[in-house]
Design a protein around this nucleic acid. Sequence first.
DNA 1: CGCGACCTTGATGATGATCAAACAACGTGG
DNA 2: CCACGTTGTTTGATCATCATCAAGGTCGCG
Lengths: 220, 220
Amino acid sequence: MTIAERSFTTTERPQARGKWRSFMSREIVCHQDDPVTDIYRVETGAVMLYQILRDGRRQIVDVLYPGDYFGFGDGTIQDCFAETLMACDVIAWRRDDAFSTVEWCHAFTAAMQRKLGAMHDHVTLLGKKTALERVASFLMRFVPECSGRLCNGAPPADYGRVTHDVYMSRREIADYLGLTLETVSRAISQLKREGMIEAPRPTQIAIKEICRMCKVAALH
Amino acid sequence: MTIAERSFTTTERPQARGKWRSFMSREIVCHQDDPVTDIYRVETGAVMLYQILRDGRRQIVDVLYPGDYFGFGDGTIQDCFAETLMACDVIAWRRDDAFSTVEWCHAFTAAMQRKLGAMHDHVTLLGKKTALERVASFLMRFVPECSGRLCNGAPPADYGRVTHDVYMSRREIADYLGLTLETVSRAISQLKREGMIEAPRPTQIAIKEICRMCKVAALH
DNA sequence: CGCGACCTTGATGATGATCAAACAACGTGG
DNA sequence: CCACGTTGTTTGATCATCATCAAGGTCGCG
């Protein structure tokens, strides 16, 4: 089961007055510069957030999985587009409803702390890592046990046997990692040549040598 | 009055059971990988957050000003060093105390929303902008009215007359913007040559032509 | 089969990193 | 007061990484 396929058990998370909404792949949930009305939480699937500069450059600033919140911008105006990477379920709350209960606030603050830590890691990736390190770091996200600072050095037993679906095109990966699609493609080819990963098809990858990948990714 | 010199009026912000602490310039408030015990809020001054990779590369992931919270990592372990850029006052809460009141949670969630939006902008800067655009964007932070997406096109009346203190060295600016100190220096020199800024000394700048700077920074 | 979308690979070039040296500001001690 | 060392900044010359430009390859589908 991939990260994106996980879903929340509804009992342990507040959802009073929240409205379930389903989206197809590549649907836009909200637009940059739109007013903020609702707050969303991903329940199943995956959503990308991106900003577009006036001259058309696009930066994918985050990729969201179940449990992640989005759609609140700076509190008044959306700072990003939110677009689904696959079929998704999300819960939408009216802003005022959402913040009215204490449990909701707690769930939200916990999610925000996790998210901010992840953003810090991503800033370090963009500011300091080479192309190969970025791509390796990106692929290691599919092994959550080993990609964060929680890693205890023990990879899951079945790693190397599992193939992960990458729901992003080369262009999207590139726009996420601050590279071009050609550079991403070259880096993936290099990791394949060196035997660290396999890719039966472009959108599927299997990580064959976790510890080498981890070193290449400059994760620990 | 600069951003860093602003301070909060204590009445409008919850601080029950919070403990005031004062720091000198360049003191380390908390260490990467330390356990999380307290949550801090900057009251006066400025604090930088940075991560250090195993081979010594440093990325400054954020610069905090009054009203910003820090020190909570992913909830258990610090993900960053926090170091003061100048003399600072902060309030420290025990984690459990902090989240016990509703008002505190509301203040915290509001701050986190602002911060996450700012991080998105910074990710776009790191992922897509050129060296000159990054440096110009950085300097435009000293004119908050014009640097964000709240900008209404009307610069403050006294701009160009005000010199701003940059409490960061060229190396720190570089580590923040994902560049080298030489590249930062060259970009600043270019902006000076073209008359957009003045710099009576390296750590002080005055923005002379806000609208041109804004264009160079690719802000709007 | 042929078209379109996406990916891969190659050749060339530009931006920014690296290496290096000179310069400015500042504090200390003779 | 000035020589000197220290630290940080500026500027120049060269180099490497990644972007750009270009062509060919793979896959799915009408």
